[in-house]
Computed example of a mutant assay.
Amino acid sequence: MKILMYNTVSDEMPYVEKWTEKTGHEVVTIDQPLNETTVDRAKVFDAITTQQTTAINAPVYAQLAQFNIKQIAIRQVGYDVLDLPEAFAHNIRLSNVAAYSPRAIAEYTLTQLFNLIRHNKKFDRAMNKGDYTWAAGGQAREIHDLTVAVIGVGRIGTALAEMLHAMGATVLGVDPIYRAQNEPFVTYTTLDDALSRADVISFHTPLNDETRYMADENFFDKIQPGTIMLNFARGEIVDMVELEKALESKLLAGAAFDVTPNENDFMNQKQDVTALPADVKRLIEYDNFLLSPHIAFYTNTAIKNMVEMALNDAVTMVNGGVTENEILR
């Protein structure tokens, strides 16, 4: 089988080579995402895979169908980049990699929470100016004293909840799906109740019509003063204007984000700081706001699994088989 791998990064190549040696299938890699301009590259292939944050728009699916491409395997959890109705209308099967490494994202979320409660950005900035006093950063809190609302208790949210519980934090879970196996370390509750009680709010939901800009003005009105907010899911879950207001007014004690609604304009690029979007430039000036370049997933285990699972799913779907990673109608 001949597979075209869109938007390939160098870190993926060793795992691609090992997979081709093991399976005998041919994989051709390109570094562009799948879109209206690059879809023609798929013409002579049997299957395709991609990972990207830019949308795969309607015309792409019609073109793929003309090339007799019957599937798209995305190498990521979030599938909001896909136009599901359009794909299904052209009988294109879809898959994601929902569990390439939930711990990778959970661990990084926890890392940034620790950075916030220990005021590490403040201390680093002060020390760079020669100020080594305790007062430069301020007194920290300990994690076992915190109540954390995990919004979205799927694989990633569950992994984070387990870690938090092991360190003594109280974990509140908000999710339309109740998972009984989480009861030992999660107390399920309503969103309003969680917001009224939480010291920390952490988003781990997919992006869809229900979650897009769920953290709006009304949402912020319900949180406690001094709350910490973490977003390692999708940028459009949080209204960034309201986020900035909450930081400015001290409603939020801090925030750590790995994503933004406009991340395609600047993330995974090298540029002068002055060229960053205006809202990003303002936010990174805050001592209590941490921004990372969508790297929470970025571990050796995750990259290996993303590549191997997506390629395996591509072969399975083309051959008419069943994969647990398929995105169903």
Rank of each mutant, 00 (worst) to 15 (best):
D124K: 14
H90D: 05
A194G: 02
L164T: 03
E183D: 14
R141S: 14
L94F: 07
Y188D: 00
S202V: 13
A198S: 10
H90G: 04
T158A: 12
I177F: 13
P102M: 06
W134Y: 13
L94T: 01
A161D: 00
H165P: 05
R179N: 11
A169M: 04
N182A: 13
I92Q: 06
Y100K: 02
R155F: 13
D193P: 11
M163R: 10
R125H: 11
D192T: 09
L195W: 07
A166N: 12
A180G: 05
G173E: 01
N91S: 11
T133F: 11
L172M: 04
I92F: 09
H90P: 09
A159G: 06
A99S: 13
L195S: 03
T205H: 07
D131N: 07
D131F: 05
E107Y: 07
K129A: 13
V200I: 12
G154C: 04
G168F: 11
L94Q: 05
L172N: 00
A180S: 10
R179P: 08
M163H: 08
F114G: 00
M127E: 05
S196M: 09
E183L: 15
A99R: 11
V200M: 07
S196F: 10
N120R: 14
Y108P: 03
I117T: 01
S101K: 05
G152Y: 08
T170A: 06
Y108A: 10
G154L: 08
G137E: 08
H90T: 08
P102G: 01
T109H: 04
A106P: 05
H204D: 04
D175A: 02
K129P: 03
Y132T: 02
L113F: 08
T147M: 06
G157M: 06
P184S: 06
N128C: 10
R155L: 14
A180Q: 14
A198W: 04
D192Y: 03
Y188I: 09
N182C: 15
N96H: 10
P102Q: 03
T205F: 10
Q139Y: 15
Q181L: 12
N120P: 12
H165W: 10
L172T: 01
M127P: 01
L146G: 01
A99Y: 12
A180F: 14
V186L: 09
A149H: 03
A161N: 00
D145M: 15
Y108K: 12
F114K: 00
R125C: 03
R118A: 03
E142K: 14
R155C: 07
L160P: 02
A140C: 14
D192S: 07
P184Q: 06
Y108C: 10
G130S: 09
S196D: 12
R179F: 13
Q112N: 13
H144Y: 15
P184R: 06
L164C: 01
V153K: 00
G154P: 08
L146V: 03
I105L: 15
A194S: 05
Y132R: 02
V150G: 01
H90N: 12
D193C: 12
L116H: 01
R118P: 05
I92P: 04
T111M: 15
A194L: 09
R197H: 07
R141P: 08
T189Y: 13
